[in-house]
């Protein structure tokens, strides 16, 4: 194909992304630098406010915890799936994809049913006479972390399975025949070779948690505001467009830095990747 026709075929997509997406984004970023404020003045103001500072670091903390839990739950699961026979493997992947494709409203809502005042957990504990009055399990940071883990665990599992499936079975046998016990062989062979999957999974879960809106909106309370719910409040409740634009810009920068940082760290750890 001639180069000119290749570029020609890319023009519609370029217009869509390059113009229809880039223009509003640029305008948002530009707004944070406009007006009678010092350069980066709005960012300074954002961090001077203790509430905003809390929101910022809480968002990072929640995303980090979610990523760690998702990895801890997802890694063994993915290994199990990659070792299972073809029938089990399809079934297990199927069961991970179903929640993934289900609406995030439904998935967050399910935890309201579980953790709510009359939810399953409280009902069970009351029946067992462990408690007399329902516990307040919802609308805090923990319920947000649970909801986010639930939301993103399938992504972690699937990223890992994709990589683990391509690790040759013979490699584990080779390592054991050379004298490594299975557990050691696992750490010497499977772990380093599945690192790229873990990196992809971690990036997806971390950035997803960092920017997710539905779950903190439904499962979080006033004390667990995060950046995405804060943006919504600034823009749609307080009509503070400058403030919202500032947060928006920070979220973009944050997302990009996280992706870059994790990928760089991964490359440092594994020169083969």
């Amino acid at each position: 194909m001639r180069y000119s026709s290749v570029y020609l075929l890319c023009v519609p997509a370029l217009v869509l992304v390059g113009l229809l997406l880039a223009a509003p984004l640029y305008s948002t970023v530009a707004q944070t630098f406009g007006g009678e404020v010092a350069l980066f003045g709005r960012y300074g103001a954002f961090f001077e406010n203790a509430f905003n500072r809390d929101v910022f670091f809480r968002t990072l903390k929640i995303a980090l915890i979610t990523t760690v839990i998702a990895a801890a739950l997802g890694y063994p699961t993915a290994y199990f799936i990659s070792q299972a026979g073809p029938k089990w493997r399809s079934l297990l992947i199927l069961c991970a994809v179903l929640p993934l494709l289900t609406s995030s409203v439904v998935r967050s809502f399910s935890w309201i049913v579980i953790l709510g005042r009359k939810g399953s957990v409280n009902t069970l504990l009351m029946k067992l006479h462990v408690i007399d009055a329902p516990l307040r399990l919802l609308f805090n940071e923990i319920s947000v972390v649970i909801g986010l883990t639930y939301l993103f665990l399938p992504l972690m599992i699937l990223s890992l399975v994709g990589v683990m499936e391509n690790i040759e079975d013979d490699l584990m046998d080779a390592a054991t025949s050379l004298g490594a016990p299975r557990i050691k062989a696992f750490f010497a062979v499977i772990v380093p070779l599945s690192l790229p999957g873990l990196v992809v999974g971690a990036v997806l879960v971390f950035t997803g948690s960092l920017t997710s809106f539905t779950t903190p909106q439904l499962l979080g309370g006033d004390g667990s505001t995060v950046l995405s719910t804060l943006i919504f409040r600034q823009a749609m409740v307080l009509f503070d467009w400058d403030g919202a634009a500032t947060i928006a810009t920070m979220m973009v920068v944050l997302t990009l830095s996280v992706i870059t940082a994790i990928n760089m760290a991964a490359r440092r750890l594994n020169p083969a990747a």
């Binding site: 013979d170 062979v189 380093p192 070779l193 083969a272």
Partner: peptide
């Protein structure tokens, strides 16, 4: 197998790619 001390050469070579 790890305590047998046998050398095994695989058809696929099974070299550790990393």
């Amino acid at each position: 197998p790890n305590r047998r001390g046998f050398g095994y050469v695989f058809q696929s070579y099974a070299l550790f790619p990393h």
